[in-house]
Design a protein around this nucleic acid. Sequence first.
DNA 1: TTAATTTGGTTCGTGTCACGTACTAAACCG
DNA 2: CGGTTTAGTACGTGACACGAACCAAATTAA
Lengths: 177, 177
Amino acid sequence: MPDDDHAARAPRPARPHPDGSGARPGPVDGPGAGDLAGAVDLGIVDSLAQLSFVVQAALGKVAAGHGLSVIQLRLLGVLRDREPGMQELARHLGLDKSSMTGLVDRAERRGLVRRDPSPHDGRAVRVSLTEEGHGLARELTAEADRRILALTGALDDAQRTRLSVLASTLVRGLSTL
Amino acid sequence: MPDDDHAARAPRPARPHPDGSGARPGPVDGPGAGDLAGAVDLGIVDSLAQLSFVVQAALGKVAAGHGLSVIQLRLLGVLRDREPGMQELARHLGLDKSSMTGLVDRAERRGLVRRDPSPHDGRAVRVSLTEEGHGLARELTAEADRRILALTGALDDAQRTRLSVLASTLVRGLSTL
DNA sequence: TTAATTTGGTTCGTGTCACGTACTAAACCG
DNA sequence: CGGTTTAGTACGTGACACGAACCAAATTAA
């Protein structure tokens, strides 16, 4: 097989799907947004939902290629430039602290991550990447770049840039609440 | 915390995060894309990755609000305008057929979904929404609309439309491979 | 300083999700 | 008719996530 599926694990919608269909009446889609010439517009909601599934699927494949889950990939990503405690890690990933134990346990068992006692706080732990973890993180980053870039194949450079700026603006707008 | 979160259940990164950080050196980011005036541009890869997590988180909260997972929400979404067999359902969701049994079992147990024998094929099953399932699907759709729309708060109408068109184009470009 | 409380982490039990393998039965092919 | 595909299920395994309970160090209060 070329590259696509079969690698398998983690969600990957062969056929995209927002939270459902794809050919639907269009719920909110405010004003008469769409129906330009031959342009497609699923509406902001469906388009973003579908896009998110597509991107997640891409990340899932990258991770699966190395026997990892998306959450493990995220973990490595966070640790690339940080050395947080379990609590902080949980906040970064949006998980409960009790979920972190197992997550880090599994990563540690694979030799990707290390747990060191915090110098300042007797209870705390500092989680960091091992050498192997760093290497893998680099690979994953590169592959994710390639895969996600490939997804934008239908766009020309100008469109890609616009999309990037819009998405960045949106995301920034949230974190800067 | 500002935001809201706490609703809780199912994956939901309160703080966005692509595959990791957020303040990173920027891996591939091709040419000298970013750094326009005051504009932010995380690069196409990071922006899409982060966006996907944000959207997924939003969908996760919608689902969690009704005691569902994202995948269950997707299931209901697919079934809104379809009455597929287990196999076809698996294709739509990008899952293995063996995963479907449990997924549908749980949905059925909650009274959201029904399994009827196919009239034409003695082995096959037709999965469909119950009345309750339809009602819930409608609610979820409406809430997802609201939530995702809210995410785009940092964008004006023109930007929202552009984002929608670009995302649609990207997604369409994939399904039309 | 001691007592009470907050904070960082782990443990445990439960439920969901997804996989792969194995298996039954109906449908199809030759 | 016999052999093969096809639709679904059953079973065992492992990852993931949660909440509640718990310990120990750290911080605050009395």
